Amino acid sequence: MPPREQRALMYEKKFSIAAETRSTTATKGRRHTHKCFEIVIVHQGAIILSLDTSTQVLTAGDAIIFHGSLLHGGRTLGSAYTRTAFHLNINKADVIDWCKLIPADAKSFVYAYLPQTCYPAFFENLTKLSEQPAKGDISQQDTDLVANVLSTLQVVERPKQAALHPVVRESIKLMTQMNTATQISDLARRLYISQSHLFALFHNNLMCSPYQLWMKIRIEQACNKILKEQIPVNDLVKMFGFTTRRSFERAFRRYTGTTVSQYRELGWCSSW
């Protein structure tokens, strides 16, 4: 794991790259946007990450590459997590073809996997890229260095979650797909295990219960709706399977630290 640090690799050059490694227990991070590419790599713990309308769980080794114009933010799942975020302001991206992974319209994102053993090479390649001269056109060496950075990351269809038990991985996948009114008992039946076994696996892998994760996914999805659409609270209650408006508002405030009306106004404007 890299040391906890804040380090600016380069400023006012051809490639502006800032790296920050953070260990945190924060659960109240809000969505934000910016004007550069971002690579987030999880080293320890787990993050529940929302990017535009997608909600995913990232664990150690998982990475995601996207353009910061997409509304995004993450919160800890369990007790704490450690991650590194790289912000890359790359001029003439169309020339160096950085967008082979990220569509030019910046409306999508790519999941990747970076084993701990590969992190030093990844960071070294980024450092070499940052040391390129400030002046001059994009060179073949620049292009090769960018290619080396990207090749270190193993592109995957969805978060690999390699540190998790296979049953927990499948549970997370189902939670993001199942009807919100479905019970945890139904989830256990679909996985052919007992509820007690499912709870034990979640505690050992994520330090939370299946119910706690599912609640966070539902609230995170509700946050997506609140920020994208003007949906009345009563409709959100039905949409995400809560029995009463009061139970939804209580869960929402406990998870986000604010009310629905406050979140509509403030939920996108802070960094994590």
Results as ranks from 00 to 15, higher is better:
Ala112Met: 11
Thr24Met: 08
Lys100Met: 15
Val40Thr: 10
Arg83Lys: 11
Ala121Asp: 14
Gln140Phe: 07
Ile47Val: 11
Leu129Thr: 08
Pro3Arg: 10
Gln195Ala: 08
Ile231Lys: 01
Arg158Met: 15
Gly241Met: 01
Ala85Ser: 14
Ala93Tyr: 11
Gln262Thr: 07
Ala163Phe: 06
Leu201Cys: 01
Arg254Met: 15
Pro232Phe: 02
Ala181Asp: 03
Phe202Pro: 01
Ser271Gly: 05
Ala18Lys: 15
Gly74Asn: 08
Phe66Val: 05
Leu49Tyr: 09
Ala93Arg: 15
Leu266Val: 07
Asp105Ile: 12
Lys28Pro: 08
Cys208Ala: 08
Gly29Thr: 00
Ser50Arg: 05
Leu191Ile: 07
Leu227Val: 01
Glu20Cys: 09
Ala200Gln: 06
Thr55Asp: 00
Asn234Ala: 12
Leu164His: 02
Leu77Glu: 06
Ile217Thr: 00
Lys135Thr: 15
Glu170Val: 05
Gly74Ala: 13
Val237Lys: 08
Thr21Gly: 01
Ala18Pro: 12
Ser69His: 11
Arg218Val: 01
Ser261Lys: 05
Thr180Ser: 06
Pro159Trp: 04
Gly68Cys: 06
Lys107Phe: 12
Ala80Met: 10
Asn148Trp: 11
Thr258Cys: 09
Ala112Leu: 06
Lys35Met: 07
Phe240Met: 05
Gly78Gln: 01
Leu213Met: 01
Ala63Asn: 04
Leu70Asn: 07
Ser151Asp: 14
Val146His: 05
